[in-house]
Amino acid sequence: HHHHHGSGALAALHAEGPLAGLPVTRSDARVLIFNEWEERKKSDPWLRLDMSDKAIFRRYPHLR
């Protein structure tokens, strides 16, 4: 159930192989992290948004 927010940013994801479903670039990863943060913020208003490279690598090590 993907609803768009204002920016309408869509992340490019790997379609197949071992990385299927994972973001292709760091900016794609940022979109995913932001979208998930927006969702989680509803139940956790104090949740901090962390889109640093460090956060991205921790989450998606293949982007190193």
Rank of each mutant, 00 (worst) to 15 (best):
S43L: 15
R64C: 09
F57M: 11
E38S: 14
D44W: 07
K54P: 07
K42Y: 07
W46F: 15
P45I: 06
S27Y: 15
N35G: 07
R59F: 05
E36D: 10
H3M: 11
G21R: 03
G8H: 11
R58M: 13
V31W: 11
R48I: 14
D50N: 06
W46M: 14
H4P: 11
N35L: 15
I33W: 01
H14P: 03
N35M: 15
A11H: 05
H1L: 13
H5N: 12
E39I: 10
L22V: 03
K41F: 07
S7M: 13
P18F: 05
S7F: 12
F57S: 11
E16M: 07
H5P: 11
D50L: 04
E38N: 14
A12M: 14
P45G: 07
D28L: 02
R59D: 05
E16P: 04
Y60E: 00
L13I: 13
H5C: 15
A29R: 00
S43I: 12
A12V: 12
R48H: 12
H3G: 09
E36F: 04
I56F: 01
H1K: 11
S43M: 13
R64W: 08
L32C: 07
A55W: 04
M51S: 05
W46Y: 15
S27H: 15
L47H: 12
A12K: 14
R64I: 13
G17Y: 03
P18E: 08
H14T: 03
L32M: 07
H14G: 02
W46Q: 15
G17I: 02
V31F: 07
E39D: 09
R26W: 08
E36A: 05
P61R: 02
A12W: 09
L63D: 00
S27C: 13
L49E: 01
I33Y: 02
A11N: 03
H14V: 04
E39T: 10
K54V: 08
D53A: 07
L63I: 04
I33F: 05
R30D: 03
D53F: 07
G8N: 11
L13R: 05
L10E: 15
P23N: 00
L63Q: 00
E38Y: 14
Y60G: 00
L19A: 04
I33P: 00
A29T: 00
P45L: 06
R58E: 15
A15V: 12
K54A: 13
H62L: 01
R59Y: 06
L10W: 06
R40N: 13
P23S: 00
A55H: 11
G8E: 10
H1P: 11
D50T: 03
H5E: 12
A29L: 00
S43H: 12
R40Q: 12
P18R: 06
E39Y: 07
S7Q: 12
D50P: 02
S43F: 12
R40H: 10
A55S: 06
P45V: 06
L13N: 03
L63Y: 00
K41R: 14
